[in-house]
């Protein structure tokens, strides 16, 4: 069996037009109890106007990865290594001051719970205007006019009135739109979104997703979208990176990953997602639960839950196997598993 496997640190092909190029990103959390690797060997690239979804369950390291890109992790308790280059600039080596100029201006971020991200004592208008003034230095009147424009952009009804509203006076969907407006205040080139629609109701979630997709296309923003929801990823992603136990186990175009996943975890996740399964049969679930990052198994982190695991998997960590035009799979048996016969025999696609 000759696997065309390259080592774990193989660079993902980067082109000159990339907006963001992340190579071997690694995040360690340090505490008195010791050091925990939370994110390892994460590499991906993002072109302008492209949407990457980082898909994973709780504890997979997806949110930490996102925060590491903006160095938003608590200093002293975390250590970020590797290379994050945004428009050719090295974010990890950047001095604090330059970083602050980047944050909120060229890179901005939206969160799951707008109530905690928006300041409760300022009106929506004030918060947008403040960001605009800080980054562009325009007058207050101009900044307020800009705020109004932004509320119209995110389609908040009767924006003049909402400009003077406090966050708690808005419904969940409007609040999330307001946060998107704040994040767009300086027309960022890169938008980082951490589960921005998870807390929303279904009928509101779809509105916000459609809005985000439209804004992202109109403004040509590169977007990284962290989610645990396959449906959200399918709705918005161009590329998908599936994370498990701190590593990207599968990376590829949305179609490749969602319609023809190679990694056993990605497949299992797809198969265990409830969506129109036969009602009189069990759902094919992945057994067990994700590993404790402080005590990872020696080989592949997924091996203890994997139906295809061999001794090799339990002994040595797999390297990256290329797949598609740019993607990769982190599995010893990626090529064997790619054969259709095996797929049909083990995982019934839904």
């Amino acid at each position: 069996m000759t696997l065309d496997t390259v080592t774990g640190s193989a660079p993902v092909q980067a082109t000159r037009t990339d907006l963001l190029d992340v190579q071997n990103l690694r995040v360690d959390f340090t505490s008195r109890a010791g050091r925990t690797q939370v994110v390892r060997d994460v590499s991906f690239t993002l072109a302008p106007g492209e949407v990457l979804c980082i898909l994973g369950e709780s504890g997979s390291g997806k949110s930490v990865t996102l925060r590491a890109l903006m160095r938003l992790l608590p200093q002293g308790r975390s250590e970020i290594t590797g290379q994050v280059s945004f428009q050719g600039e090295d974010v990890l080596a950047m001095p604090r001051r330059a970083l602050n100029g980047l944050r909120g201006a060229r890179i901005s971020m939206i969160f799951q719970e707008p109530m905690t991200a928006l300041d409760p004592v300022f009106t929506i208008g004030d918060q947008i205007a403040e960001t605009v003034i800080r980054h562009t230095g325009v007058s207050r009147d101009k900044a307020m006019a800009r705020a109004l424009e932004l509320l119209e952009l995110v389609r908040i009804p009767s924006p003049e009135r909402r400009l003077r509203a406090y966050p708690h006076e808005l419904s969940g969907g409007l609040r999330q739109r307001a946060m998107i407006a704040v994040s767009l205040s300086c027309y960022p080139q890169l938008l980082l979104a951490d589960e921005p629609t998870t807390a929303l109701d279904a009928t509101v979630q779809i509105q916000v997703l459609i809005l985000l997709k439209q804004l992202q296309q109109d403004l040509g923003m590169g977007t990284i979208f962290v989610t645990h929801d396959l449906g959200v990823a399918a709705q918005i992603a161009d590329k998908i990176a599936v994370m498990y136990a701190g590593r990207i186990v599968e990376y590829g175009s949305a179609e490749e990953v969602l319609l023809n996943p190679s990694h056993p975890y990605a497949r299992g996740m797809l198969a265990s997602t409830v969506s129109g399964q036969a009602r009189d049969r069990d759902i094919s679930a992945i057994p067990g639960s994700p590993p404790d990052l402080r005590a990872l198994p020696p080989g592949c982190a997924f091996a203890p839950r994997c139906a295809f695991a061999t001794d090799l998997c339990r002994r040595t960590e797999p390297g990256l196997t290329p797949r598609g035009t740019f993607g990769h799979v982190l599995c010893h048996h990626a090529q064997d598993l790619a054969s259709p016969a095996l797929v049909g025999a083990t995982v019934t696609a839904t």
Binding site: P287, G288, S289, P291, D292, A295, P304
Partner: peptide, 8 residues
Amino acid sequence: AIAAQIPG
């Protein structure tokens, strides 16, 4: 019954 089959 597999809730327990987890390393550690």
